[in-house]
Design a protein around this nucleic acid. Structure first.
Length: 674
RNA sequence: GGCGGGGUAGCUCAGGGGUCAGAGCGAGGGUCUCAUAAUCCCUAGGCCGUGGGUUCGAUUCCCACCCCCGCUACCA
């Protein structure tokens, strides 16, 4: 059988590893373990994407060579995975020598098939975001930052993406499971149907990249370089043994990506591969984002959640379980400390942990810690038959859910089984049986505790991919000397718990957490970036969206009170020219749901100001209202209209409902606030 | 604007033309005592977004509307 090969994205090193990165990688690790128990050899490649202008610049600002800069951050990713106990077979770096060979090789293959040509790239460019801006008119502003863009032109090499429109559509059609979830697949198809433009794959002005072979002064542009890591990670372009490994692994069985980079994986990547005459990956799964509780954590303040404090609070398995169980894989999910702690207590501590604890305690007490003999079938009752049947069903259905990426559903099934067992113990009352002297009761007691222990054994095997450490502990407590990871689902069936096996040392596997205290502790110490200053710390500031990045939107809501390092001086404050103004007119803007166009009299002049308050204010209610205007804010165009300032409003609640600031007595228009 | 997804109990969601619309969590009450003050049992009376239509009957089908979200290309 071919090795099951899956990948995480290779993470861009302009941001330190955070919970979003950890999420993707944890899922990948869980799938890898699951596949191993399913009898597959598994290759899991993760890594870091280390080229590009952002990196070049961040290194410059940090005062180090780019290579040194990326070495530092890349190492942080590896140490993060180590702290999380994540196992991968290869960590690819795009600055490695063999990756460079792989990029050259695939480029030559694509070139040989005639899909590369030299052309001129002409477009508007935002220097701040280092982004090319398309589909905009003259003097367009950057959609990301609002700053003006400049027209640039350079000679580039292009990939003839347009030639792959139909082949891609055909491929999607023939392989319905290629892009998942379904809704993402629809998006990709509709994107491709609108027509594909050729893609420039090289850059002239960029220095920090892989040089294009045979061409002076051009380096590969991001995706041609980055995506190829999926090939170089399993030996593509490596001389010697690489060939063999590549043949065993490629095509990849699964690329796990965040939804924000799906298009590159579902359109560009297959097109590159088709052009290079390489087989296409079997599946690409785009997961959603973790949306952080906005009043507790705020990206704008730079305190993106790191996985480390979460692990300190609930353990690696607690975090893994939460992410796999609480999130419907593929969908966005709100992340909250309360949810994390609650899941831990109710599912892991109360249900599973307690079941293990009570079962093993009774076996210890009533049978001197040796697995009792359930006796002949005659002494068993319909209750046991029901448990046995439920176990069988759980084993098969759990796998069918997991095979279909429905992790939360699969776990739900296991917990239904666990719940059955807790109920079973209450109904059979082994502690009562233990107090009786007759033979029938003794036999019954043995049956009940065997049943419970055997059910735990099966549960441990099923749950190993999700909560490996805890299940290995349970495994040892059940008395098994060999590692749990050697088990195979194919052999998993009722009745394999060896009789008279001595159980191990009893120990609580999931100690219940004090909810209030844990949440308080988490709220106090989850920020990264500030406290952990290194030469590379600057990278956080330029963080852009990466896989599973939290909070894609500008943060609203109540942010944390500033700590001492956030103080500004009075001079800083006085840079902001705040003026009292009177709203003279207000009207809706066609096609805009949130924006209102206001004219505000600020004394010396009347300004046109656009405000995103249409959802909460009626235009007619605003006229005549005194408001506070930021008068020296750089004008910016929105919806084709220029906004010459902003009105100040409180941002209330999770939705950030705006409440305009006004005065409690009349003030002349133009009064300066200080 | 176009395309796609969605609006169901406090929360996260499932369901699907017809017995009282479901689950988990949370909350309230009760129970046992083997166990991690855990388990187990009972309780929640939710206009199933709004308005029409089809039908003996719609939350489930159709139409319109409102609201939310995603995609609509070269930051990664």
């Amino acid at each position: 059988m071919k090795t099951f090969y899956l990948t995480t994205p290779i993470y861009y090193v302009n941001a330190r590893p955070h919970l979003g990165h950890a999420y993707t990688t944890i899922v990948a690790d869980a799938i890898a373990r699951y596949k191993r128990l399913g009898g597959h050899r598994v290759a899991l490649v993760t890594g870091t994407d280390e080229h590009g202008q952002k990196i070049e610049r961040a290194a410059l600002e940090a005062g180090v060579e780019p290579q040194k800069f990326v070495d530092t951050i890349s190492a942080e990713f590896r140490s993060q995975w180590e702290r999380l106990g994540l196992e991968y077979t290869h960590f690819e770096r795009t600055t490695s020598a063999h990756h460079r060979k792989a990029v050259e090789k695939i480029f030559q293959a694509v070139q040989a098939s005639g899909h590369i040509y030299k052309g001129h790239y002409r477009g508007r460019y935002c220097f701040h975001d280092e982004a090319f801006v398309t589909d905009t008119g003259e003097e367009a502003e950057c959609p990301l930052c609002g700053r003006p863009t400049e027209l640039v032109e350079e000679e580039n090499y292009f990939f003839r993406l347009s030639a792959f429109e139909q082949p891609l559509l055909d491929y999607y059609q023939k392989h319905p499971a290629f892009i998942r979830p379904e809704t993402r697949r629809n998006e990709v198809i509709s994107f491709v149907k609108e027509g594909l433009r050729d893609l420039s794959i090289s850059r002239e002005k960029l220095k920090w990249g892989i040089p294009m072979p045979g061409v002076e002064g051009q380096v590969f542009y991001v995706w041609f370089d980055a995506l190829t890591s999926y090939l170089s990670g399993v030996g593509y372009g490596h001389p010697g043994t690489g060939e063999e490994k590549f043949a065993d692994c490629w095509p990849a069985d699964l690329h796990l990506v965040g939804k924000e980079i799906l298009r590159f994986h579902a359109v560009y990547w297959p097109a590159f591969l088709m052009a290079a005459k390489l087989p296409l990956p079997k599946a690409i799964f785009a997961h959603g984002w973790l949306i952080f509780e906005q009043d507790k954590m705020s990206k704008s303040k730079g305190n993106i959640v790191s996985a480390d404090p979460l692990v300190d609070a609930v353990g690696i398995d607690g975090l893994r379980y939460y992410l796999m169980r609480n999130i419907v894989f593929g969908q966005d999910s709100t992340f909250s400390y309360a949810g994390l702690v609650q899941r831990f207590n109710s599912d892991l501590a109360n249900d599973l942990g307690n079941l293990a604890s009570r079962t093993l305690a009774m076996i210890g007490r009533y049978f001197k810690g040796s697995i009792p003999d359930p006796g002949p079938e005659a002494v068993q009752e319909s209750r046991e038959a029901a448990i046995i049947e439920a176990a069988g069903k759980t084993i098969t259905e759990f796998q069918s859910k997991f095979d279909n990426f429905e992790f939360s559903r699969g776990l739900e099934l296991v917990w239904r089984f666990i719940s059955n067992l807790n109920k079973y113990l209450v109904e059979t009352e082994p502690w009562v049986l233990a107090g009786k002297e007759d033979e029938a009761s003794k036999a019954r007691l043995a049956t009940v505790l065997y049943t419970s222990a055997e059910a735990l054994r099966i549960t441990a095997v099923l749950l190993y991919p999700i909560i490996p450490t805890a299940m290995q502990k349970l495994w040892a407590q059940l008395g098994f000397p060999e590692p749990l990871e050697n088990m195979r689902y194919a052999n998993l069936a009722w009745g394999q718990l060896p009789l008279a096996q001595k159980t191990g040392q009893a120990e609580v596997i999931f100690p219940r957490l004090d909810k209030e205290k844990t949440i308080a502790r988490l709220s106090a110490g989850t920020a990264i970036g500030k406290a952990v200053g290194t030469a590379a710390g600057k990278a956080t500031d330029t963080a852009t969206r990466t896989a599973a990045e939290p909070a894609s939107k500008p943060q609203k809501g109540i942010s944390m009170p500033p700590d001492a390092t956030d103080f500004i001086t009075i001079d800083d404050f006085s840079k902001v020219d705040l003026r009292a103004g009177e709203i003279k007119s207000a009207e809706r803007i066609e096609g805009a749901t949130r924006l209102l166009k206001l004219t505000v009299d600020i004394g010396a002049e009347v300004r046109q100001v656009l405000a995103g308050i249409a959802e909460h204010y009626q235009p007619e209610d605003l006229v005549g209202m005194k408001v506070v205007v930021v008068a020296n804010l750089k004008p910016r165009k929105m919806r084709g209209l220029e906004s010459q300032g902003m009105v100040v409003a409180a941002s209330v609640g999770e939705e950030g409902k705006p409440v305009l600031v006004t005065f409690n007595q009349d003030v002349p228009n133009g009064s300066k606030l200080s």
